[in-house]
Design a protein around this nucleic acid. Sequence first.
DNA 1: AGTAGGATAATCT
DNA 2: GATTATCCTACTG
Length: 200
Amino acid sequence: MTTDLGVLLSGPPDVAGRGLLGCRLHAGGVTVRLTEVEAYAGTGGDPASHAHRGRTPRNAVMFGPPGYAYVYFTYGMHWCLNVVTGVEGVASAVLLRAGEVVDGLPAARARRGPVADRDLARGPARLCQALGIDRAAYGTYLLGDGPVTLRPPAESVDPARIVAGPRVGVTGAHDLPWRFWLAGEPTVSAYRRHAPRRRF
DNA sequence: AGTAGGATAATCT
DNA sequence: GATTATCCTACTG
């Protein structure tokens, strides 16, 4: 059975997110198998989304057709990669949070430094660092021949292995279980929500 | 083991 | 000027 990514990504972000687990992401000579993702909707309804307050220069690609890369820079030092989902005109995307390096191990190690192999792409910013993804990937098409490519899983993923829970690091909307990961994978990020800058 | 705090700059109000 | 879809270091027990 083959996953048609074009069809999958044109659906709602949570459905697309589940389907992206197990897919292979290739860039910079490194390939990872995705083990953790998060879904984000658009204007209204999802306060955690970058597109919640409408279209801006940064999130413009989220309003375009599915299959394109939404890359953003945050905390003054980190890049994160999303795949745009849904129909053109409505913003939604899936944040690629973590994966297992299955090819190009030396290149990933060179970019990430001396860390355990399972930590090479364990977290959205670490994943981008391991693959060498930055602003240059913004708006590129992921289902073709671009610098960053996404391919269906080599083996189909057992739906029973997919776990859902609250998203990480967001300020609100914790009642929406739109973080998906594969049970038992050591590469899934273990961060909880802590140090939330409380201003009394 | 677990968590608290700082780094650091683009983006938006 | 405040905020941030994070990561790393250092400290506590």
